[in-house]
Design a protein around this nucleic acid. Structure first.
Length: 401
DNA sequence: TCTGGGGTCCTTAATCTA
DNA sequence: TCTGTAGATTAAGGACCC
């Protein structure tokens, strides 16, 4: 019990080490003792998705361009990711975690937060719980995992990071400030390259130095929200809650061309495939989006997005494609060869079948001519029955008097 | 070095609406 | 009915994460 009378909150963070590369090594014994890089293949556009620790000795790390990785270690094993296999292994791992606590929040295929509060009575102190997590995953999958346990998500995550690979870190509440003090500010959550530049200008390199800066001073350089966030993190403050039911907010698919493309028929074909992929995922997950987003990238990494809000939610690839293509042709994007094209949907609506009389609402027509013309075209081409299959109505808020 | 793919969240500006 | 305005919504982009 804590002095508040409530049991001590313990949050765990479990992170599989170099996950994709570890699965490849486990399943292909001939890769043992070799640097393994999973991602794009040398000579193609792309980056490193995962590198094992042998490859990291050559300075290879995730997100590094594959050309640079193969320059640094031409003899490494380069592999394309086999997502289906990684997802199978990931499911096994999550099942194991759920045997320890029902409150598991997946962050990605290879990491999760766990609410371990109250588990001490069953398993023993956090040290024992951490060892148990690692042992069960190793026994069942042959993979190593780094585990951090602390009073909240931030501390648990930083704990697992600082002991990688195959590590275990327990940070008790009374040790939080000392644990954080020497860490570089870059280890804080959400603090990337741009914010690091600002901190460097301010002469702030460690968490201890950040702690010494008045909040108002930070606010003038970072804005209120970011300043409060990083200042709070420096004192170990973060949400403790683990949310097992976190749901996704968008679905998107994108494609980078090996060579930039200007031909509209090719762009349209690819967009069609991507829209079909988005729609299939949405239908599988029983989701319908009312905002369609088009993403286009040109040479020099110049990236633009255009989005359009529909009056009706959809998971119909024809509607998604039509809207995305209309955004592409709309005339506000540069007419240049395209490096990447992508499409997504978001802002979920209720799944209700469309009503035929919706076509005759004058107000709607006024507000969204383009959508209705799209729907008219779809209805014309496929019949109103097709619309009932693919479209759903976004629930309207009741009008406040 | 030359930058994938799939996401989340935040900020800002423009536009709509009460 | 007109006008000014505040707040909400939409749209675009950027930073960040795995």
């Amino acid at each position: 019990m804590t002095h508040t009378g409530f049991p001590q909150r313990w949050v765990g963070h479990a992170d599989l080490d170099a996950f994709y590369a570890s699965v490849e090594q486990r399943d292909n014994p001939e890769y043992r003792d070799r640097p393994v890089v999973v991602g794009a293949l040398p000579g193609r556009r792309g980056v490193v998705a995962a590198a094992n620790y042998k490859a990291r000795e050559f300075g290879i790390h995730s997100a590094m361009p594959i050309a640079e990785a193969s320059r640094r270690c031409p003899d490494a094993v380069f592999l394309r990711p086999d997502m289906a296999r990684y997802i199978r292994v990931s499911r096994e791992v999550f099942q194991i975690l759920e045997t320890l606590t029902p409150v598991v929040e997946p962050v990605s295929v290879d990491e999760a937060y766990l609410d371990l509060t109250g588990l001490e009575k069953l398993l023993g102190p956090p040290e024992t719980i951490g060892c148990e997590i690692k042992r069960r995953i190793m026994d069942a999958t042959g993979l190593t995992v780094s585990v951090g346990i602390g009073p909240n998500r931030l501390i648990a995550k930083l704990g697992s990071e600082c002991r990688k690979p195959d590590g275990l870190a327990i940070i008790h509440p009374e040790d939080v400030l000392n644990f954080l003090a020497p860490l570089p500010v870059a280890s804080l959550r959400g603090l990337g390259r741009q914010t690091q530049k600002i901190f460097r200008r301010l002469g702030i390199e460690t968490v201890a130095q950040l702690r010494a800066v008045p909040l108002q001073h930070l606010e003038s350089h970072l804005g209120k929200k970011a300043a409060e966030n990083f200042h709070g993190q420096a004192f170990g403050i973060s949400a403790a809650g683990v949310n097992p039911g976190r749901s996704r907010k968008s679905i998107s698919k994108e494609h980078t061309f090996e060579k930039d493309v200007q031909a509209q028929d090719i762009l349209h074909d690819v967009l069609h495939e991507l829209a079909a992929g988005v729609a299939a995922t949405a239908r599988r997950e029983n989701l319908s989006g009312s905002v369609v987003t088009l993403k286009v990238r040109f040479a020099g990494f110049e990236t633009h997005t255009r989005q359009h809000k529909l009056a009706l939610s959809t998971h119909d690839e024809r509607v998604i494609l039509r809207e995305a293509w209309a955004l592409f042709l709309e005339g506000t994007l540069p007419r240049k060869p395209v490096r990447l094209i992508g499409v997504g949907i978001s802002h979920w609506g209720q799944s209700e079948p469309i009503q035929a009389d919706l076509f005759d609402q004058p107000q709607k027509r006024k507000r969204d001519d383009r959508l209705l013309s799209t729907l008219d075209q779809v209805a014309e081409k496929f019949g109103k029955g097709a619309l009932q299959m693919g479209c759903t109505i976004r629930t309207k808020k009741p009008n406040t008097p």
